[in-house]
Simulated scan of single mutants.
Amino acid sequence: MWKRRRGVATFEWCAAGVPYVAALGVFTTPGGTGARGRLHAPGGGREYTAAGRGRIAAEGETRMMGHSHAVSGALVFAAAAPFLPPLLIGRPLQPGEVLVGALLSAGAALLPDLDHHDGTVANLFGPFTRLLCRTVARLSGGHRHATHSLVFVALAGAGTQLGVARWARGFTGGLTFALLLFAVHALRSHASGRCAHSRATTVGLAAIGTAAADTWLPGTGAWLPYAVVLGTLAHVLGDCLTRQGAPLLWPYGRRFEMVLIKRTGNRFETRFLVPVMTAGTLVLVWLATFAPTALTG
């Protein structure tokens, strides 16, 4: 699918069920599955093979950060699971709740980017989710403004708490489905196939997870606000590690940053940070499931 946005030609295709995007360049030869083409980016050209799983990273921002945010949300939830729930809800989480909670927190970690017209959530269902994100951006002042603040984190948690208290099971199920949808989409854990099939699989997996949580984890509503807060907080603090930072104290305009990721999707992020966070999440979830007292004594 060819797209032109702000004078920049992009081309999207699916390889093994994953949509890949090459941006900030012009294709002189269209490519499809099994075809070859050349991307002329500023400073030179690169060849790609659509049949492979390689990603073209042109000189500019890629879309890896949505995946990174999701993994960071899962990691923060898994790390806090042995300690915070007994203080906040009066009981420890069960192993299944830790696993589902990590996924829900991963989905919640994408909520601040509802203000990004071309982010992970915006590209979930094409023009429908892009319209949603453009609307949020207009209402919040643009990308990395109100939704990237501690005020938004607090409002997201309070709103979830209010929704659970007022609409109970219906609200819990709806939000669980939405967050699982975001998480599966961002973590790219859907099956191979064309883009439309991948979206269908993403929806199916989210529906199965929601039904399982509703059936076997009836206490999800008690800790769902906590998962939302941790996920959104992980995103906001993660953006403080990049250029532009985040306006933590919005509406006060100062941005807070400690730049460790100079360019979204660079090697430090994709080859070190994300693998380390993924391994840490898996270890912590395993400990919570099979050795719940290992961390708390």
Rank of each mutant, 00 (worst) to 15 (best):
H40D: 05
R46K: 05
G7P: 06
R5P: 01
R46P: 02
T29C: 02
T29G: 10
T10F: 07
R38K: 10
K3L: 01
T29I: 07
G37L: 08
P30H: 06
G52L: 06
P19D: 11
W13I: 05
A57K: 11
M64I: 10
A22D: 04
A57C: 12
L39K: 00
G34M: 00
I56E: 07
V21P: 01
F11S: 02
V8S: 07
T49C: 06
Y48F: 15
I56C: 04
L24N: 14
G45C: 06
G31T: 06
Y20R: 05
G31D: 09
G44E: 12
H67L: 14
A57Y: 12
A9V: 11
I56G: 04
V8C: 07
H69R: 06
T33H: 09
G32T: 13
G17L: 01
G17I: 02
G25T: 04
T10P: 00
A41C: 15
R55C: 09
G31M: 11
A9Q: 15
H69Q: 15
P19L: 13
R63N: 15
V8R: 08
R63E: 14
T28L: 11
H67Q: 08
T28N: 06
V26D: 06
V18Q: 09
G7V: 10
L24T: 03
C14T: 12
A22R: 00
G44D: 13
P42M: 10
P42E: 11
A35N: 05
A16P: 03
V18W: 01
A58N: 15
E59F: 11
A57V: 11
A57P: 02
